[in-house]
Simulated scan of single mutants.
Amino acid sequence: MKYDVILFDVDDTLMDFKMTEENALQNTFTAFGLPTGLADYGAQYQEISKVLWRDLEEGRITIADLGVERFRRLFAVDQPELDTKAFGHAYLENLGKEVHLIPGAVELCSRLSDCRLVVITNGFASVQTARIGASPLCHTFEELIISEQVGYKKPDREIFEYAFSKLGLTDKTKVLMVGDSLTSDIQGGNRFGIDTCWFNPLQKENHLEIQPTYEIKELGELLAIVNGEERF
């Protein structure tokens, strides 16, 4: 076996965040008297969220502030009286209730039972803990390393240093980071000096200078990589 420890991202790697997000947003909009909110604000929300999550990766905002700021910006013009803090809290609660796995996630983790499997995520602690805990993967991971709890985030080296310390690891050659984000998962793993695997089911073109060690379009392809049988 080439790798003993697999560090997994969660959203859009093991869990379908698009479906999670859409359902949670719709339920929150409806609860706040905006039943057409997803159609009315969805595209604008995506643009705001994309900017703020990049700001988080680059250290310009905290995750706590992100949770409120995205809705403050969204409603600043059309709904200035709306309590954005309450909306953000309700949205996180609704996110935590949504459990939608990427096809093949359960089978993959089951077949990797000889490895140490660990989650390393920038998501909100309450949301990620709830979703994983309510999923078939609830007993799969040795540790859930969540940026909000540990005080470090991907792509910073510190969150990987924390993971290695927590897990008692010393050999970087036996650890693989798997995720869908080039700027977070792959760049973070590269900076720390461990191998990386980009999960790219939509076959997006990589226009960045960030290069993963491996690239897969289906989760099942990871098995050959872990076992040292890949042909790339």
Rank of each mutant, 00 (worst) to 15 (best):
Y3K: 03
L7P: 04
D9E: 05
D11G: 12
L14W: 00
F17T: 01
M19L: 13
M19F: 11
E21Y: 05
N23H: 13
N23G: 13
Q26M: 09
T28D: 14
T28S: 09
T30W: 10
P35F: 03
T36M: 15
G37S: 04
A39F: 12
Q46T: 13
S49C: 10
L52Q: 09
D55G: 09
L56Y: 13
L56A: 05
T62A: 07
T62Y: 06
I63M: 04
L66N: 04
E69F: 11
R70P: 01
R72E: 15
R73T: 09
L74S: 02
V77K: 15
P80A: 07
E81M: 11
L82I: 09
D83G: 08
A86P: 05
A90Q: 15
Y91W: 07
N94V: 10
L95R: 10
E98Y: 10
H100M: 12
P103A: 02
D114W: 06
R116N: 10
L117P: 11
L117A: 08
V118A: 01
V118S: 01
V119D: 00
I120G: 04
I120Q: 00
T121V: 05
F124P: 04
S126H: 09
V127A: 01
V127R: 02
Q128Y: 00
R131T: 03
R131S: 05
S135F: 07
H139F: 06
T140Q: 07
I145V: 08
S147F: 06
Q149M: 09
V150L: 04
V150D: 03
K154T: 02
D156H: 15
R157E: 13
E161S: 14
Y162N: 04
Y162K: 05
Y162V: 04
F164A: 07
K166D: 05
K166T: 07
L167R: 00
G168F: 06
T170I: 12
T173R: 14
M177H: 08
V178L: 03
D180R: 01
S181N: 10
S184W: 01
I186T: 00
Q187M: 15
Q187T: 05
G189H: 05
N190M: 09
R191F: 07
G193N: 02
C197T: 04
N200F: 01
L202T: 15
L202R: 15
L202N: 15
L202P: 06
Q203G: 07
K204E: 12
H207Q: 13
E209I: 08
Q211I: 09
Q211P: 02
Y214H: 03
Y214E: 02
E218K: 14
E218V: 10
L219M: 01
L219C: 00
G220K: 12
L222V: 00
L222P: 01
N227M: 10
G228A: 05
E230P: 04
E230R: 06
R231G: 13
